[in-house]
Nucleic acid binder design. Structure first.
Length: 213
DNA sequence: TTTCCGATCAACT
DNA sequence: GTTGATCGGAAAC
């Protein structure tokens, strides 16, 4: 049987928990992006946890900077960063108690506003590739640094909101090493995805870039 | 002030 | 499986 979709925004308390609890609990939730042309909605299918002070892979590991300041603020807000000179990636800040941790949104299934997402993702050959990967997800939803710090706890109609959606039973959640994280940070199985979901991005181990001679 | 390289994607072979 | 694109944060000098 299929559980009903909950359209109540997730509360601040939802995010004010250890990131390893929040991350798998975000799978199956509904992310709503209000654009000037209309809403785009996404069912979250893949996420990664980043646990600030303990985690060499986290942007917050070396302390607060102008870029990562939002991670040190209240939970339930959006942290957006720019990477590889051309892409944006989107995180949801978690708690508890101001601990600078966050969940990277890696992939999702576009359920509403598919046409709007396609316009921003012209190279996608299938709809399941619209948000298959963190930078693709941000591109499809028209997310950039101007949304850094946005409150994602509603009300609906705000630029970004996360609704209750349809939580995924733990039996349908897979875990594994994080993608593209170097060194000790790769050891933890802090990547979570919905088992056998076609919108989950392929795993790639971290590959050091070769120096030009 | 300079250098290095990244929580990536897409287009190649 | 490999490589180029292209910018900015932060460590190294």
């Amino acid at each position: 049987m299929i559980a009903a979709t909950d359209r109540t925004p997730l509360t601040r308390a939802f995010f004010d928990r250890p990131v390893l609890e929040v991350a798998p609990d975000l799978l199956g939730r509904t992310l709503v992006r209000a654009t000037p042309d209309g809403p785009i909605e996404l069912r979250l299918t893949e996420v990664e946890a980043y646990d600030g002070p303990n985690d060499p892979g986290s942007h917050a590991y070396r302390g607060r900077t102008a870029r990562n300041g939002v991670m040190f603020g209240p939970p339930g807000h959006v942290y957006v960063y720019f990477t590889y000179g051309m892409w944006h990636c989107m995180n949801l800040v978690c708690g508890p108690g101001g601990r600078p941790s966050g969940v990277l949104l890696r992939a999702g299934e576009v359920t509403v506003g598919t046409e709007l997402a396609r316009k921003r993702r012209l190279s996608a050959r299938h709809d399941r590739e619209l948000a298959k990967g963190p930078a693709r997800l941000a591109t499809a939803l028209d997310v950039d640094r101007s949304l850094d710090g946005t409150d994602a706890c509603g009300p609906e109609g705000s630029p970004i909101t996360v609704l209750g959606g349809t939580p995924v039973p733990s039996g349908q959640v897979s875990t594994g090493p994080r993608t593209g994280v170097a060194g000790d940070g790769a050891a933890h199985p802090w990547r979570f995805w919905i088992s056998n979901d076609p919108t989950v991005s392929p795993y790639r181990a971290h590959t050091p870039r070769r120096r030009s001679t």
